[in-house]
């Protein structure tokens, strides 16, 4: 069970606070790859959201139930067919995008099921990552805590890559927060930011 209180959660996961800042009171939220339900629990506290999580792992299902978070066991890679179109105000993919296999169809599914999508991911273009590569090694850090051989992160990207992807897939970016730790990075974000959070919708 996640016993962390709100301020602790926000400090450990600065993307939580950024996401909460965008979500109005009482919104309906679907959190894909919700883990132990921490984000939904956090958003229940900040925004009284009506939320559900989707999670594949048995242990996390139990953890979500302990956190009193609604959770639906399912595999994101097989799509969101269990959810009706336009069922949610927000569909969130928090620190999971880079680990998805069918990334492009999943982004489209997010915008079928929700009015808006929110994703957060580690910025591979962050200068420390670039330094690691320059020195000849794959980056290993707090945001990318895996070795090349055991990482679940198969689709890492930079902010620039993600924005190009959105443009090419007719996804309109509404808002962006780039952070390193808890501090926001507005100057040269693709170089100075370690984590990015985007809010987007379907481009009409």
């Amino acid at each position: 069970m996640s016993t962390l209180d709100h301020s602790t959660l926000a400090a450990i996961r600065p993307d939580f606070a950024a996401i909460a800042g965008w979500i109005p009171q009482g919104a309906s939220v679907l959190d894909l790859g919700c883990g132990d339900g921490s984000l939904l629990r956090y958003l229940r506290g900040t925004s009284k959201v009506h939320g559900y999580g989707v999670e594949i792992s048995d242990d996390n299902i139990v953890a979500c139930i302990r956190n009193q978070v609604n959770v639906i066991q399912g595999d994101l890679e097989s799509g969101l067919s269990g959810f009706e179109s336009n069922a949610f105000d927000y569909v969130i993919l928090s620190q999971t995008l880079q680990a998805t296999r069918h990334t492009e169809p999943l982004m489209q599914e997010m915008l079928r099921v929700g009015s808006e999508g929110i994703v957060s991911f580690p910025n591979f273009g962050y200068w420390r990552n670039r330094m690691n590569i320059l020195q000849g090694n794959m980056p290993v850090s707090k945001d990318l805590p895996y070795q090349w051989y055991d990482t679940p992160n198969i689709h890492l990207c930079t902010l620039h890559d993600f924005e190009t992807f959105c443009h090419d897939n007719k996804i309109y970016i509404l808002d962006r927060r780039v952070m390193t730790g808890t501090s926001e990075r507005k100057l040269l974000p693709n170089l100075l930011g370690s984590t990015a959070v985007y809010r987007f919708k379907r481009a009409v």
Binding site: S28, N70, I72, F83
Partner: peptide, 13 residues
């Protein structure tokens, strides 16, 4: 879900 009811679901292996 359509009726916005609280629900959790687990598919047990």
């Amino acid at each position: 879900l359509h009726n916005r009811l609280k629900v959790s679901y687990s598919e047990i292996t």
